[in-house]
Design a protein around this nucleic acid. Structure first.
Lengths: 256, 256
DNA sequence: GTCGCTCGTTCGCATATCGAAATAGACTGC
DNA sequence: GCAGTCTATTTCGATATGCGAACGAGCGAC
C-alpha cells in the first residue's frame, strides 16, 4: 500500500523548521512526485489531519491522536506518570522513559520541571542510542545477535567533542553498563546534558524500557547524579516493572 | 486515497482496552473487510509502525513520531512548556493547553505533578468542548456562524449528574465566559474534576488555544480556584500569546 | 501588455489496490 | 481421526491509484 506509506511520510515532513509547507516543499521533503504528494495532502485534509492556509499546508491537532493511540494502547499514563513525577519532584530535574526503536531511543514519557536549560525532548523524540544514558542501558539489554546487528548498522556520529564514537569504546561502555546496572552520560548528546539511566525489566527479566533522570552539568556532576539518584531510579524501575504484569503491552511491543 | 484513510483508522483502532489486536479484531473495530485490514497491517508492519506477536498486532513507538510531527511543527515545547511547568509548580496541580478540533478539545500540552486523583489526560486526548473549562473558552472565541454550526452538530451528552446538557444553558455559559474572560467548571466531565481556563489569543486577537489549571474538588473549591489562579493563568496566557508572534504555526493551524 | 518562470492542477494509461468469495490453517469436541 | 467452527490467507475481476507529462494560474520583469 504505497499510498499509506507515502501519506505517513507526508505527515512526518512537518517539523519545527517546516511548520507550514507548500505542495512542492512537501513533495521535495517527502521525496515523491508533486502529483502524489498532492493526493496525499488532499486526502489528509479531507480526513482532518491537515489544513490549508493559502498555498501552505499545516498539520492539525487530530494528528496527535495517532501518537496518542500508542500511549493509550501501552497505558503509559498509568505505567509511568506517577513515578516520573515523583522523580522529577524529588530531583528538581527531568525524568523520562524510553524504548528502543531500530538504532534510536524514542521517548514515550517525560516529566520535567522548570529549569532554564535542558535537553529539548518530548514524547516521540528520537536520539541515537549510543549517545544517551537510556540508549546504552537498552543496548546492554539486547540479545547478542541483535547487538551485533546494531554495531553493523549504526554510524557512530559525534554530537559534541565528548561523544564516544569508537565502536570498541562503545562496546566497553555497554559492557560496563550491563555489569553495573546503570549508565551515566555527560556532554555526549549535547553540551551540558548529564543523565543517569537504569533498565526497566519485564516479568521475564528482559529489558524493555529505560528510565532516566537528566540534568545540566553546571547544576550537578555526573558522579553526584549517580550517587544521589541511582537508588530512587532503581526503585521506580522496580515499580514500573511490577506494573508491566498488569499492562503487558509495552513489553510485548518491545523489540526482541 | 482510501488506503491512507484506512491505514490511519487502523492505527487509531488501538486503544487502552485494545493494546493487542488480531486481524479480525482490527477489521471489526476499524470497520473494514479483513483483507483490507490485513493489507494495512502488513504495510504498517513493514514500515515499522506495528509489530506482530503470534496472531496479535501491537503499535510500535515509531507511531509517536506522527504525533511528534505536530508538536514539533507547532514548536509546542518552546511555546508552552515553561509556562505550564511554572503553573503546575505554583499550584501543585495540572496545567494544560488545548485547541479546538471539530467539536472536541484536544490536549496539545500538559504538565502535571503527583496527585493521587486527577483527570487522566495526555497529549492527544480529546473531550467534548461543552463539558470542559477549556472547551467553553474556545467556544466563546468562535465566530458566530461557526458557533451556530457547533450547536447544530453537537450532541450534548451528560458525563455526570452535573453536566450541563441544555443547549440554552450552554449558550449562556459561553456568553458569560466571553464576558468574564474565563470559564470554571466542576464535576461536569468527571466527578471531582474542577478546572479554570482562560483563552490564548494570537496577534490579531483571535482565540487560538485555551490554558487551564485543573484540580480535584476535594482539594480546592471552584471559587477558590478562580480567586487564586485566574491572575497567573492570564499572565501565562499573555506570555504564550506573545510567543505566537515568533511561532505562528499554532495560530495558523487553528480553525477559522 | 507580453514573456518567462515557477508552482499547482489535470489528464489518462499502466499498475496497484480493493474486497467478495474461495481456500487454507488452527483448534476443539466427540 | 473426523467434523465443525472460526480466523487468516489467497485469488482475481472491478475499480482506484501513481505519476509523467501537459496544461493552467499567478507573478514579476521588461
Amino acid at each position: 500500500m504505497g499510498g499509506l506509506a507515502k501519506g505517513l511520510l507526508v505527515i512526518r515532513a512537518f517539523t519545527r523548521d517546516h511548520s507550514a509547507l507548500t505542495l512542492s516543499e512537501v513533495a521535495a521533503i517527502a521525496g515523491m512526485p508533486a502529483a502524489t504528494a498532492r493526493r496525499c495532502l488532499l486526502t489528509l485534509e479531507e480526513l482532518g489531519y491537515v489544513t490549508r492556509r493559502g498555498r501552505a499546508f499545516l498539520l492539525r491537532p487530530k494528528v496527535l491522536e495517532l501518537g496518542a493511540a500508542y500511549l493509550e494502547s501501552m497505558d503509559i499514563e498509568h505505567l509511568t506518570q506517577t513515578h516520573l513525577e515523583e522523580l522529577a519532584r524529588l530531583t528538581g530535574d527531568s525524568a523520562a522513559l524510553s524504548v528502543l526503536d531500530g538504532n534510536d531511543i524514542v521517548y514515550v514519557a517525560r516529566t520535567s520541571v522548570r529549569t532554564l536549560v535542558r535537553l529539548e525532548a518530548h514524547v516521540g523524540s528520537r536520539f541515537p542510542a549510543h549517545v544517551t544514558s537510556m540508549g546504552r542501558v537498552l543496548l546492554a539489554g539486547l540479545a547478542p545477535e541483535r547487538l551485533e546487528h546494531y554495531f553493523r548498522t549504526q554510524k557512530f556520529e559525534a554530537f559534541t567533542d565528548h561523544t564516544v564514537t569508537d565502536p570498541k569504546k562503545v562496546r566497553q561502555l555497554i559492557e560496563e553498563c550491563r555489569r553495573s546496572g546503570y549508565s551515566a552520560v555527560e556532554d555526549e548528546l549535547a553540551y551540558g546534558v548529564v543523565a543517569v539511566a537504569v533498565p526497566v525489566h519485564d516479568q521475564s527479566g528482559r529489558v524493555v524500557a529505560a528510565l532516566n533522570s537528566s540534568s545540566h552539568s553546571r547544576r550537578i556532576s555526573k558522579a553526584r547524579l549517580v550517587r544521589d539518584r541511582l537508588a530512587m531510579l532503581k526503585q521506580a524501575s522496580r515499580a514500573i516493572s511490577a506494573e508491566l504484569a498488569r499492562v503487558p503491552g509495552l513489553a510485548l511491543s518491545a523489540q526482541a
